[in-house]
């Protein structure tokens, strides 16, 4: 059942206009990234690599949010859910299948982006190392966490509000990574309060290995595993919350 739903979701997601258009826009942005290098007066390869890796993250998140927010609420609004949930299908399987289908589509999108980005770097003469692929994999995990975030928000609110909340979560998720550097400004109860709020948001900075990869700075295998496990835990939590919300939802 889950595989069936995942398969249909994968096909629907990869054929959606937003998915294809954002990929095309990514390709265009990658081509333009070389301009930054030319302006800088340096050989430009580092700047191009920085931009290419960041574009993968930014466009990946945009694809995740655009596609993820259409998953549950749009199905309710368009009633596509009715013909599915009237079948002998528990709602949790529907949610898990939906997420897995979306995740598969996003992973394919990320792989395509990474391949295109690395090929472009190679063609333009930038040094290409295996660390870029590792950074790409961690970025893909960041995108999957954002897909789970969008799934969760969309179960709780309207698609438009869910999009806004997703982007806010993305900003917060990266901001909390810098929070320890700003903690010295806080006094008394402010510090534990701040820590408590920050702990409620996935720390997306854990998936930012992009800048180090561009400079070919190595990362330990154990560290990669820990970061991927951190992402997997958040995904599991967010999908579970979504299941609880969807199970209680009146359609």
């Amino acid at each position: 059942m889950i595989r069936t739903i995942a398969g249909a979701t994968f096909r629907e997601a990869t054929r959606s206009r937003s998915f294809v258009l954002l990929l095309a826009l990514y390709a265009l942005a990658v081509l333009l990234s070389r301009v930054g290098g030319w302006i800088s007066g340096t050989d430009g390869s580092t700047i191009t690599a920085n931009l290419v890796m960041s574009l993968q993250s930014v466009f990946g998140v945009l694809v995740a949010v655009a596609t993820g927010t259409a998953l549950v609420q749009s199905e309710i609004q368009q009633k596509t859910l009715y013909t599915v949930l009237s079948r002998p299908l528990p709602r949790w399987k529907f949610v898990v299948g939906k997420f897995l289908g979306l995740a598969a589509a996003l992973v394919c999108g990320q792989a395509a982006m990474l391949a295109l980005g690395i090929a472009y770097l190679w063609i333009t003469g930038a040094p290409v190392t295996g660390w870029l692929a590792v950074a790409g994999a961690l970025t893909a995990m960041e995108v999957l966490v954002m897909a789970a975030v969008s799934l969760c928000w969309t179960a709780l609110s309207s698609p438009l509000l869910a999009t806004v909340l997703c982007l806010a979560t993305y900003a917060l998720g990266h901001a909390v990574g810098s929070l320890p550097g700003l903690m010295y400004h806080l006094k008394g109860f402010q510090r534990p309060l701040c820590v408590a709020f920050a702990s409620l948001v996935p720390d997306l900075s854990r998936f930012s290995y992009r800048d180090e990869a561009v400079h070919a700075l190595p990362i330990a295998l154990g560290e990669i595993v820990i970061r991927l496990a951190y992402g997997a835990c958040w995904i599991a939590l967010l999908v579970m919350i979504t299941v609880i919300v969807v199970r209680r939802k009146q359609l």
Binding site: G36, S40, T46, I47, N50, L51, M53, S54, L55, S57, V58, E142, Y170, A171, G173, H174, A175, G177, S178, L179, G181, L182, L204, S205, F207, S208, R210, D211, V214
Partner: peptide, 16 residues
């Protein structure tokens, strides 16, 4: 520190 926070995980690209 604030600049790093505002860079939203794209510190390398934002700095360039």
């Amino acid at each position: 520190a604030m600049a790093r926070m505002l860079s939203l995980g794209q510190a390398g690209a934002v700095s360039k």
